[in-house]
Design a protein around this nucleic acid. Sequence first.
DNA 1: GGCACTTACGATACGCGTAAGAATC
DNA 2: GATTCTTACGCGTATCGTAAGTGCC
Lengths: 304, 304
Amino acid sequence: MTGNPLPFSLRQLQYVRAIAETRNFRQAAERCAVAQPSLSAQLAALEAALGVRFFERDRRGVILTPAGEALLQRVNRVLTEASELREEAKHFRDPLAGPFRLGVIPTMAPYLLPKAVPALREAFPKLVPQWVEDRTATLVAQLQQGRLDGALLALEAELQDLETTTLGRDHFLLAVPKGHAFAKGRKPIRIHALEGERMLLMDDGHCLRHQALAACREVGMEELEFRATSLPTLVQMVASGIGVSLLPEMALAMEAGRASLVLRRLADPVPYRTVVLAWRRGSHAAVALKKIAKLLRNMRHFVQ
Amino acid sequence: MTGNPLPFSLRQLQYVRAIAETRNFRQAAERCAVAQPSLSAQLAALEAALGVRFFERDRRGVILTPAGEALLQRVNRVLTEASELREEAKHFRDPLAGPFRLGVIPTMAPYLLPKAVPALREAFPKLVPQWVEDRTATLVAQLQQGRLDGALLALEAELQDLETTTLGRDHFLLAVPKGHAFAKGRKPIRIHALEGERMLLMDDGHCLRHQALAACREVGMEELEFRATSLPTLVQMVASGIGVSLLPEMALAMEAGRASLVLRRLADPVPYRTVVLAWRRGSHAAVALKKIAKLLRNMRHFVQ
DNA sequence: GGCACTTACGATACGCGTAAGAATC
DNA sequence: GATTCTTACGCGTATCGTAAGTGCC
């Protein structure tokens, strides 16, 4: 607001508090670990600066003036706030402590978070992750603006000049409804075999959409009008027999249980997305994020 | 409490606030009226002291870290409290402003305060008098302890080494019930004429008791068992015909109206009490008290 | 080259401690 | 004389400003 320097120091306020509590300059000086004349001088300076006398000094001892009594309340409040500032700062010294804003794309969130959140809580109990689920472009923008500390993304997206560390590869599986031609058999299926299939894809803006399209770019397929905004919905559509789709492997554990859904492995070259943890170049959070990445890699949601 | 010096200064906190608000070191430095490198240095020192980075500095500009965002709240609270301390101190710079603890003895309070309180409010509107009514000895002790700034007393009491300024003399009148032998006539009555009268006095500890006794010390009188704890009560007793009493003149205006009471002047040497304003020697309040005394003298409650 | 922040460095000022002084008991 | 606060004075360091450096547009 004003920018004008305040006419007193925190040290001076500490002296006032010590004198008020001990009612004795010598003891107050001892408590503050300064020579008693230094304390006297600082009190004099403070009283001169404020134009107010805090104490009466006479033979009977040290007496608070009415002004001193009233201002002492304020002095204590300043010192209390300052002390709490110092204490709160301690909590932030540990990079793996305090609030930590993490983004995650919708095609990973439902599969990673159920395991990642408890794991993080156990490994870094002082960390308070605040998860934000949004599309890649939004997360990248928020990282750049400093509104996120890190984000779980798929590398194939445009990550501008973010720094990243790779968590692993997430292979794509073919998801078909029960009764579909591909629903029988165990051998990996070649991408080109999908020629002519009706493909279900994520909505625009979801990187998984582009990755799936890229994986099939040489295959002539029909894209259905429906575009899913969440992967579980997409899976549901496949199970309903509306079409087929590519599903990331990390979804397997959760989605494979559906009665009317069949998941088939794809033949080499198996398409995949690279899961990374990304952050703004030079972010203070880099240290913490690398440790978080290490933890997430050990969870083995995907191929290293 | 701790006495340990805080690892940062108010100035540094101001810099943080300025940077946070301007998001620009140069503008922040300008607002704080320092060279920009000085501000950089102080921020670096603060961040080192707290072990916490407040801002990310990069080409895109200045971004608050999560720690910085959280701690900024505290920073602002410290600065707000400090600023209010400075402002409140201003109110105490004027000796005739702020709370002012004033004692008054019970035999003056009901007669002086009804006029003195409004007069003080008008003359010194910023003064906030806090009146305490108690006996002389209690008030003197409280003055010595610094729990009172001044007190209205009668000089004839033992005022130890208090400083005083005289407000005036308060002559004693003779109060008798209607129908009493002295109730008729206009000439001043000689003290010795009271020989044999039944005298009503204040309770022990009230200086007026001792003053009345002193005035009559050569006169043989009967003291009644009843001892009043307030002057209006004493007057009421006199009016009831129980006995006679000496009444200070300042009570005249209020008490003379009673139908069954007659007040007679006393002959020379008229006994009196000296009304003073007293304060602890060397009290910061002396200046203000002298001005208050001047005001009270001008109210002409008593002979100068 | 211009802008923004950091680094380097010398000057000043502030807070400190020691020592002596003043007042009180 | 002991205790307590104030005054005097010299010292070290923190803070400041100027100027040069670095990185980015």
